[in-house]
């Protein structure tokens, strides 16, 4: 709470800290995200009276309180960042490949579940890409979106965003689907109405009851917050919710390795997708 400046992270310190975070959470920080670690951890380091990241790294490695500190560290670095069209290759694959194939096999009702939707950028991105593809005239697609945090759900339902949510979005799409009002971008009702939001805790096996059977589930950059038994529980629930040959999309640094082998892994070039066998 006491105001403090930023401590600079040296290259070797960055590598070691990124390695520690990766080993304990599966989250990778590339060198372009160095500033993020500086911004988020400087205050904590000063609270401990240290003035370098190196001393903090030794604290994490050798202090008697290291286990406790690891939790503090992970909480500080895992604040979830989301924006429109994040990890877009997966969404392109869903819209341009997975869904057309389902339709060609005669499917006319398709359900997609964004299981940890935060402020809504992910389900709305899928809705926008579906709309753009023209596929909606050939089948009915329902998008469900859930999160445990009611505050973010409120924002999602409002459908109002700021520039920071658009860090990878072509202006043509912004102009087509958002109305700019000062510094606020309001999502058009036609996209808003395509998504149904509800509150759910993924650890709860009833989390998918509103969805019923899903054909594709997105759950990206969330499993990293769970320990292995919890991960297994969530993945098991996803497995039961998915229809046969259904698709599960995880964040690109996440894996089902050592959690389950009931999914088939497929590399489509722009990333990995897991298919229910």
């Amino acid at each position: 709470m006491i105001n403090a400046g930023t401590i600079k992270l040296k290259d070797d310190e960055f590598a070691e800290l990124a390695d520690i975070i990766y080993k304990h959470s599966g989250i990778t920080f590339s060198a372009t995200k160095k500033y993020l670690l500086e911004n988020r951890l400087s205050r904590r380091i000063q609270e401990l009276n240290f003035n370098s990241f190196k001393d903090y790294i030794y604290y994490l490695k050798y202090d008697v309180k290291k286990m406790q500190e690891m939790i503090t560290l992970l909480n500080l670095v895992t604040i979830n960042e989301t924006y429109f069209l994040r990890e877009r290759p997966q969404m392109d694959y869903l819209v341009n490949k997975v869904i057309p194939e389902m339709i060609s096999k005669g499917k006319r009702n398709i359900k997609i579940w964004s299981a940890a939707c935060s402020t809504g950028e992910e389900p709305y991105s899928i809705a926008i890409l579906l709309k753009e593809s023209g596929i909606l005239s050939k089948a009915r697609v329902d998008i469900f979106a859930s999160d445990i945090n009611t505050e973010v759900l409120e924002t999602a339902q409002k459908g109002e965003y700021r520039t920071v949510s658009f860090r990878g979005v072509p202006p043509t799409i912004i102009n087509k689907y958002f109305e700019k009002d000062g510094f606020i971008y309001k999502l058009s009702p036609e996209i808003k109405n395509m998504v149904t939001f509800y509150k759910a805790n993924l650890i709860d096996r009833m989390a998918s009851s509103r969805v019923g059977m899903a054909d594709a589930i997105f759950c990206r950059n969330v499993l990293i917050y769970f320990d292995i038994p919890a991960k297994q529980k969530v993945i098991d629930m996803f497995y039961k919710t998915l229809a046969k040959d259904g698709f599960l999309f995880l964040g690109h640094s996440e894996t089902l390795n050592k959690i389950t082998d009931s999914f088939k892994m497929h590399n489509f070039g722009g990333g990995i997708v897991y298919i229910k066998e």
């Binding site: 403090a4 400046g5 000063q46 003035n51």
Partner: peptide, 19 residues
């Protein structure tokens, strides 16, 4: 030093100067 820098941060001046 960390403590002198703290004084700049306390007053928000760490944003004003290039440190």
């Amino acid at each position: 030093s960390k403590d002198i820098r703290d004084m700049f941060a306390f007053t928000g001046l760490d944003k004003v100067f290039k440190i």
